[in-house]
Amino acid sequence: MGFFDKIKRAFTGEEKIETTEVTEKYEKGLEKTRKSFSDRMNELFANFRTVDEDFFEELEEILIGADVGYEASMEISDALRQEVKLKNAKSQGEVQQVIIEKMVEIYEKDNTEKPEININKEGLTVILVVGVNGVGKTTTIGKMAKRYQTEGKTVVLAAGDTFRAGAIEQLIVWGERVGAQVVTGKAGSDPAAVVFDAVRQAKKQQADVLIVDTAGRLQNKVNLMNELEKMKRVIEKEIVDGPHEVLLVLDATTGQNAMVQAKQFKQTTNVTGIVLTKLDGTAKGGIVLAIRKELDIPVKLVGLGEAVDDLQEFDPGEYIYGLFSGLIKDSM
């Protein structure tokens, strides 16, 4: 069943939506998110009589409040203006539908395939994990390692964060927890050398997955970004068509700066996917919609909680549905 049908059915109440376990998790994780967002939406809908300029101004603010971003917010509100004119949409239901359809359209574009982690079927898969400071790179790597180990794969971790105090130890603890080997260098040493050793080691062991941790770096630090590029070059040299994935970890609480982060990291390391962490807070992470629209980087994984198995594959339908389901159900 397509995602659109799902929403339409929810709207018309034709059919009950089957609630899978994953949906529940999303709903649970996004509950806080949804509440404030949809509450405000409902408030807005309840208040408006005629669709006038004030209404659009307020709508823009609400979307911006969800960190969707200025441009995407404007686009949605413009589409709504257009739609209202065309269809003479005045009822709450009609207006809501336009908003949701637009949100999904922005995210999905013409691409409905599920964004999965690219796994190298013949041999070693190398995953490079990058991002600014404190977004949860090392934790994400721990969770990913656990997943692959459970699937029966051999995982090697590379402690490429040689800068931050305690970062290597943190990865070692994760390695012990999930039973993955951790390749380390000395604190303060060249991370590219650690990567080199790790690739050699992973090849020797015939491991299935190598996940490379990197130090958090702000995207405007030229030297650090160059260092990152070097790490990527080392991987490219050692492994044909590697790295297979470059994952940018984004904190859901980050605002518009996430767009700049995505741009810069894409430029240096050709990011192939996003991991959106800390979605279990009240943050909305709406910026991923704008990032997808502008840079075409898909979200691949989401962090919905502290537990090891709270790292989930990203499903745009579930995400947007999770964001709006309160709204849809409430209006029924």
Binding site: D67, D251, T254, G255, A258, I287
Partner: peptide, 12 residues
């Protein structure tokens, strides 16, 4: 507080 925090900063 991380200076890059979005709208969420106020809630937090």
């Amino acid at each position: 507080v991380d200076a890059m925090t979005g709208q969420e900063a106020a809630n937090v």
